[in-house]
Structures are given as C-alpha cells and as structure tokens.
Amino acid sequence: MSTVKTATPGTVVYAVREERSEGAFRQMSRRFMKHKLAVVGLVITLFLIFIAIFAPWLSPHNPYAVTAEFSAAPSSVHLLGTDQVGRDVLARLIYATRVSVIVGFGTVALYVTFGTVVGLLSAYIGGWVDMLVMRITDMFMAFPYMMVILVVVSVLGPTLWTLVLVLALFSWPAIARLVRGSVLTLKQMDYVKAGVSLGLSTPRIVFRHILPNALAPIIVNATFGVAAAIMAESGLSFLGMGVQPPTASWGNMLTDAQSISVMTDQPWLWLPPGIMILVIVLAINFVGDGLRDAFDPKQ
C-alpha cells in the first residue's frame, strides 16, 4: 500500500494494483461465445455483410449484363447458370445480398432509434402523452400490417427506400412499448431515485442510468428485427411489391419460379435465392437467441 511520488507535483499515483473487474460487456460476450449456433450465426452474418460490401469485387459477372445464353444450366462460366434473360445467377445472388443487408439493418436502425425515443419520452413524461402514445401503438399493432404495407408500397411506389421506411413505420411500436415498460420498471429502482436525490439532471438520469440498463431487450429485439425485415422484404419482392427488377433481390429472383416450367426445369434459378434467405434469416435468429441467453444469466 505504498504511494509513489511522481515527478509532476500535485499528482499522486497510487501504486496499489487497481482491481479492474470484468465489465458487463465482457461478461456478456463470454456467455455469447458459449452458444455455438449463435457464434456460427454471427460468422455467417458477418460473412454476408462482407459480401454485400465487396460485391463488385467478388461477383464473377455484371449482374445486369445480358448474355446470349438464356436459362443456361450451371457451367464453368456461369456457376449457377443464367436466368431467363441471360443474366448470371451467381452475380445476381451476390448483388442481392446488398438489398437484404440494407433493408435488414436500415429498417432496424430507423425504427429502433425512433421507437426508443418515443418509449423513453412516453414513460418519462407520463400522463396524457403516455396515454396517447400507447393508443397509437395499439393502433399500429392491430394493423394487419402485411396488408397495409402492400397498400403503402403500391401508393408510394416500390423502391428499396420506401420498403425500409414502410417496414420501419410498422415496427417501431413494439420497441416503443418495450422501452416504455423497462423505463417504468427502472424508474422505480432505487438507483434511479438516488440519481434524482443526488440532483442529477433528467437527461443524465435517462441516458446514463436508465437506458443502459434497458438496452439488453432492445438489442435482442433489434436482432430479431433484422431477420424479420429481411424476410418481409423478400416476401414483398416475391409478390412484385418490393424491390423491382432489374435490381436483384432474393425475393424477386423467386418470383419467376411461380411458373411450373421454371420450377421443374430450372431449379438453379430459384433454389439458391431461397436458400440464401433461409440462411441469412436463420443465422441472424441464432445470433438473437444467443444474445438473449447471454443477457439473461438465468438461462
């Protein structure tokens, strides 16, 4: 327990070994790493994000270039064959990763931010504001949202960004409710009351003491949200109400398979994009499950 004087006057350095213990983040990631499927899911997700970013370098062909070979079976030139207008399926598959990643993460970033702010304000202000916000979320949650999304997309015109906007529009209420619920619980915690009696400002209490403790369910929900948004985009694109050709999306690559001849004679056209959707959604869901377990030590 000896103190060492340093050259600079006024500062005293304590030579005592500071016992810096494991933080919540470290602890959580250690628990996460134990969940094998989640780790595999994370690796796959990161790999697909990598593909999305470096698509132009990884793609063997231009996804829009029309070649002379229509509906060609897989060959050494076109590893997954070509589609009905002669575009390389593998190239389209690789470029379509971008759509899924943008829709998945873009939507979630948008609605989690919005939902969190609304939930925080609603819980913190209370009274009629809270009442009104809760009724609005009731309204959005009672929407048969797939139907409304179809209407909105057809009205606004189906582009990538309308999809992001519309999916976010119908997803924020769940986060807002989640955040409101945890804030109301946390507001009753003594450490928040202590913050008030210590004279800390309301924003400081909200952002330093309440939000960090409410983060776990938000992150888990957001992760599952990425998977849900990717799935919704593919469904809409499949129906022709999402990303429009010639831009490739895994969903719209499956649209053609509705014709029996494509389905039976050219499985390379529709099996790979379908499998890709399954893989990315599955991977992200595993990550979500792993995070949920990691945040909740009871499991």
Binding site: A24, D190, Y191, A194, H209, P212, N213
Partner: peptide
C-alpha cells in the same frame, strides 16, 4: 443496497 447502486 442491491437496487440502490446502478449495476452498470
């Protein structure tokens, strides 16, 4: 004392 200190 278990709830009066911010766990994070």
């Amino acid at each position: 004392p278990f709830s009066s200190l911010n766990p994070r």
